[in-house]
Design a protein around this nucleic acid. Structure first.
Lengths: 241, 241
DNA sequence: TCGACTTTGTGAATTCATGCACGAGCGACA
DNA sequence: TGTCGCTCGTGCATGAATTCACAAAGTCGA
């Protein structure tokens, strides 16, 4: 009992990196590499070696001093710790552009997240087949979830529908949501929600672009002085909630 | 001169939140809301009000005590600071599943990132039209970038091609890369790179799912004791690089 | 068997981010 | 014009994440 079982609760920042290490390790294993040092892994992941060691230490003490980590064993341990030693089928909500791309994208099934179902509320889309899966009606969500034990829902709808979809996913018993709609969705705290907003990513890049542009053109751009001041018009209190 | 120009260098964590505030503010403006308190904005963004104020304070001092922030003016300032007062056309590399979905996804153009070009190295794809844009050959990248001044490249290729594509993007003069391929891509430090790996997101959710499952079934699952020990076989030093 | 060498695992120092708590400023209203 | 109430801006304390630096633990070759 006292053998391996690692101390729980891995810091979020580490949890976010483990999949990256995992992916690199799998590539290395495929390439015939048997073991790897924290230094080598750090190099490939583009991070600091000490960080790699600390991250891995949360899993347990699986390295061998003077040698490094056995690739296969590390893969095994990361998988186990992250719950990737089983498949997690997902239900995609939204059979539009993005939903279809996700369903057709091999990267899901190939990495342990097969598309178990796709639903849409548009009758015209229902019964069409995408990526080998027949689109079903949104109303069947409860049946699907309770019938298959799917725990993860993927929202690929327009922003306007996202929150309602999230509510329905939660009601159906989903406990993790990956949201691609460009809006915040809220859910009870027992449910994990992650939002991936493509535009947000681009906007972050935009900030850095802009920053570089400013630096190039002499420390700061001559003010784009639009005259507008903070209190350009006296503020009138509007609805705040 | 001493008027507005805010102190530079906004912490990364704040930069990542500003687009979210921006989006909420735009929604509010559309709904006719004229001003909003840090409390209100925090509520909508799902974060702490002090954090909102601190984030916004990096832009300058644009709030009015006792009243809040003028929505329109805040939108203007966030846009300006993030470089969103101009369009940033992007070039998408990869006309496959994902590339097509991205090109067809309104969320890009609609938010200031029009798809300026799509390229692919598959002759069969070249000249087909996706989302109103004709796919051109990858080899035209240099011409496209220098001709249009596009600064942002989006990688929507298989992982195996990602690094080479990144290199070519950099060579062509791109300074920001948004990578959707499930692999690390490296670039000179003058180039910003962000990777969005859908599977990684799911794996993070998996971790939390698994964690909940473990907690439910009595503190910790009975060990899946596969006998395997850290040094199951004596490690032989393999290639490390 | 021993000593040189390599690489881990982790305490300690540092940097970054969050959240509290409160002074200061502003509008509203008498 | 003075007072009251609201909300910002920010100093400070706390906590999380990163990085350094080194003892401990192992391998390898002679």
């Amino acid at each position: 009992m006292s053998t391996s079982r690692p101390r729980r609760r891995i810091p979020e920042a580490s949890v976010a990196r483990l999949p990256i290490y995992l992916q690199i390790l799998i590539e290395q294993a495929d390439g015939g590499v048997l073991n790897i040092s924290s230094e080598g892994l750090a190099e490939l992941a583009g991070v600091n070696a000490a960080k790699v060691r600390k991250d891995l230490s949360y899993l347990g003490s699986y390295g061998v001093r003077g040698v490094g980590y056995e690739v296969d064993y590390l893969i095994f341990q990361i998988r186990r710790e992250m719950g990737l030693d089983q498949d997690w089928p997902v239900v995609i909500v939204g059979g539009g552009n993005l939903g279809q791309a996700l369903a057709g994208y091999g990267g899901f099934s190939g990495r342990g997240f097969p598309v178990g179902a796709i639903v849409d509320n548009d009758p015209a889309k229902v019964d069409t087949v995408v990526g080998g899966v027949r689109i079903r009606h949104l109303d069947e969500l409860d049946t699907i979830v309770s019938g298959t034990g799917i725990a993860i829902g993927v929202i690929a709808t327009p922003a306007s529908a996202a929150q309602e979809v999230a509510d329905r996913l939660v009601a159906a018993g989903i406990t993790s949501i990956l949201n691609f709609a460009p809006t915040i969705v809220t859910a009870p705290s027992r449910v994990s929600v992650r939002t991936v907003d493509l535009a947000v990513e681009l906007q972050i890049l935009s900030y850095h672009e802009q920053r570089r542009a400013n630096l190039r053109s002499g420390t700061r751009t001559g003010g784009r002085g639009t005259g507008l001041g903070p209190g350009s018009a006296t503020l009138k209190r509007g609805a705040t909630a």
